[in-house]
């Protein structure tokens, strides 16, 4: 058992040091905001992507561009990191994301699932704030 363990741990270590906690799933580069088309610009929807609408709450800065198209496989933690970069918030600062202005999905939840369950009118509204606003 311990041998199997060694292997996993080493893998973890190498990944862990290099990458920021973003997913390494197929997507545009991590240091730029994702290449996105606001949904008004394109008629046909890519089924592997979802539209999200980011709204601020509390004292979190407003984003000038609020509507983004993102891979379904992206995690909530990825969106949080993306917003932090966009509003130039310190990476160590916390940012909370809420659905329905009521619950905060676990950071490892994929956007596709949340969109399927809580999206409406073809988009998913997420509120972001710096403190725990709801719950």
């Amino acid at each position: 058992m311990s041998e199997g363990l060694e292997v996993t741990k080493n893998e973890c270590l190498t990944q862990e040091k290099k990458e920021p906690p973003l997913n390494s799933e197929p997507m545009t580069h991590d240091d730029k905001p994702p290449k996105s088309t606001s949904s008004s610009s394109g008629k046909q929807k890519n089924p592997s992507k979802v539209d999200i609408l980011l709204k601020h709450a509390g004292d979190a800065p407003i984003m000038s561009k609020r509507k983004w198209t993102v891979d379904r496989t992206k995690k909530i933690s990825w969106v949080a990191d993306f917003i932090k970069k966009y509003i130039k918030s310190d990476p160590s600062e916390s940012l909370f994301l809420y659905v329905n202005q009521s619950f905060a999905p676990a950071p490892d939840t994929d956007l596709g699932s949340i969109f399927d369950c809580f999206g409406s009118d073809g988009k998913l509204v997420l509120h972001y704030c710096r403190t725990q606003a709801w719950g």
């Binding site: 659905v99 619950f103 676990a106 719950g135």
Partner: peptide, 12 residues
């Protein structure tokens, strides 16, 4: 807080 959040999601 995770637990309560999942409860809220379930109730949603």
């Amino acid at each position: 807080s995770h637990f309560m959040s999942v409860i809220k999601e379930a109730d949603a």
